[in-house]
Design a protein around this nucleic acid. Structure first.
Lengths: 340, 340
DNA sequence: TTGTATGCGTTATCAA
DNA sequence: TTGATAACGCATACAA
């Protein structure tokens, strides 16, 4: 059986209250008493019991807030499922999870949301726009004692507790490796990205280039186009690309707009059997995979992202445990029709 | 805030003890009292608090036993990691996990192990040989109040609580889909299986055949050989197969013996770039993937298998919660060098 | 600076 | 058949 505060208090000849004050650094303990308590606790290898902590935490009414840019983006449905499930898992352990979502990547709107959700919450989970204003908002929250965890996308130069989400470079490498296998190492690739201003998209392209440079010298990148994650733009830009580059026989879709790209391919290369690889399972990408248009989807464990972020927040709030890593990277999962 | 036994007892004008007796079917309650308590509990939507249960469970010293045929089989290293991690996760919640392993698929030896580990344990996790004697042993244990969960491989016609493990048909389909993509749908496949007597191996082959019949008519199965999961036999049988069937350009490895197969390929087809797909990440399969010999490994979440089995046992012991499903199937994960 | 008492929700024991 | 009480481990308000 493991060691309890009560045992320590008895061995030291002090009360449980005193042991608690020492082990939780609440002060107001005579140095020599503290010394003694610490020594005994270390010697017995004391670790606090989570069930006891959880039960006691109920009286504090802890709240974990979630503020996600997620509306109108099917990818986040699974992230939210993971968050909600974690809320259910932890409901009995002294915390409540309060979920808020918004639409569109607008800096001042996100700042407002962080401020509003952050008030009256002990931890905040957010997918931040990588912007100094947002960073300032996060630091202000941290300053006021609210712990902040970033999910899906990270932000630089802040005091957020940790990041939980995709390893974008790894994802790009996986896409590159998969396209290498699909094409036998000979291909002319058209890359369709979301925006050259989004770090994650660029990292995916960098990872992709790494792999084809090292392993598949027979693969050439013929062109890169931007879609701004919009299906109509994706249709237009892909069409243009295919007209200009008749040699393109392979498409690497870095971000959203998958349906638009595939419509363009169907229009301008009706008989071809192009190798197309994209990211993230959504109803539309799934349908295109089943139709044989898309050959593989690279996924990033959206459910796990959400679930893990909440659990890390919980551990920090209830046990004071800092996460073991600064960043928790999800696996790059390869989905084909058979293992969808 | 959620409903507690105390609240129910106050509303009913009885003691908490009585409410506990009703809700946990301990008997010794007057029918009309029981009636009333149940009615109130239902109306308020009572759900027991897990943290409270966990704390109280400490006094019972619950033990979850694990009896795995795992020695000398690298695949089970990750399963055991998942089990041990679950043990650590649950250590604070009133259960202990006791792990035992053995080597070799011998029925009477496994029966003995189940009997021995089963004594003095409240739940047992086991990867059973699909044999009537083992089934009898499992049912005897169930009869004596020990709940049994099968992991990795299931057994028919028993009263085990549930199964956690691979969906072998799905795994075979994934391998088929992957080989279809790798070969462009034209290939002569040599299948190297473990044993035609092992259900899981046959199911993988069935899944594989399903997919190539439906989606890849250009893929032919040239031959099937057995290795008994032994590298030396794998080397020998693969060599024989390659000599007899010079048209083979693709190999589907169903079970262990991956290293033996690849040695044979290197020997008898030194210059070829065969498409080889196998199952389960082990140090040797991983090395062969990195060397470019193996093109893809199909995995079955070994860590999650072990972890989940323990958690299901815990939920059953502490909360009396029967699992939601009869079988929990793992995902078929496709691993290539880039997302290993 | 330290100790005591109480509560978190559930369960086991003992007395009535 | 029922109720009262203590215990599980931790946290905290309050008393000393």
């Amino acid at each position: 059986m493991s060691v309890t505060i009560k045992q320590i208090s008895e061995l030291c000849g002090v009360s449980r209250g005193t042991v608690d004050r020492v082990l939780n650094n609440r002060g107001k303990v005579k140095p020599e008493t503290e010394q003694k308590v610490r020594e005994v606790a270390d010697r017995l290898g004391y670790t606090p019991n989570m069930a006891g902590k959880a039960l006691a935490a109920r009286k504090r009414d802890l709240v974990i807030g979630v503020a996600l840019v997620a509306k109108g983006n099917a990818f986040f449905d699974d992230v939210l499922s993971g968050i909600r499930q974690a809320g259910r898992e932890l409901a009995d352990y002294g915390v409540r999870v309060s979920v808020h979502t918004m639409k569109g990547y607008d800096v001042s709107q996100q700042c407002r949301m962080i401020r509003e959700v952050g008030r009256g919450v002990h931890a905040l989970i957010v997918n931040p726009i990588n912007d100094p204003q947002v960073a300032a908002e996060i630091d202000a929250l941290t300053e006021s004692g609210v712990c902040v965890i970033t999910v899906n996308t990270d932000i630089e130069n802040t005091r957020r507790l940790c990041y939980v989400g995709s390893d974008y470079i790894r994802g790009g490498e996986t896409a590159g490796g998969m396209l290498g296998l699909l094409t036998g190492g000979k291909a002319n690739v058209g890359i369709v990205t979301g925006s050259v201003k989004v770090l994650g998209h660029n990292q995916r392209i960098a990872g992709f280039r790494n792999v084809i440079r090292r392993k598949y010298p027979g693969i050439r990148v013929a062109d890169i186009q931007e879609t701004n994650d919009d299906d109509d733009q994706a249709f237009e830009m892909t069409g243009k690309m295919l007209r200009i580059h008749p040699e393109i026989d392979t498409i690497f879709i870095v971000a959203a707009g998958v349906m638009g790209v595939c419509r363009a391919v169907r229009n301008f290369r009706p008989q071809s059997n192009m190798a197309i690889v994209c990211f993230d399972k959504t109803p539309s990408s799934e349908q295109l995979l089943r139709a044989g248009m898309v050959k593989a989807i690279i996924c990033q464990q959206p459910f796990t992202q959400g679930n893990k972020a909440v659990h890390l927040a919980y551990d920090y709030l209830v046990s004071g445990k800092k996460p073991e890593h600064d960043s928790f990277f999800m696996k790059s999962e390869i989905k084909i029709e058979e293992n969808l």
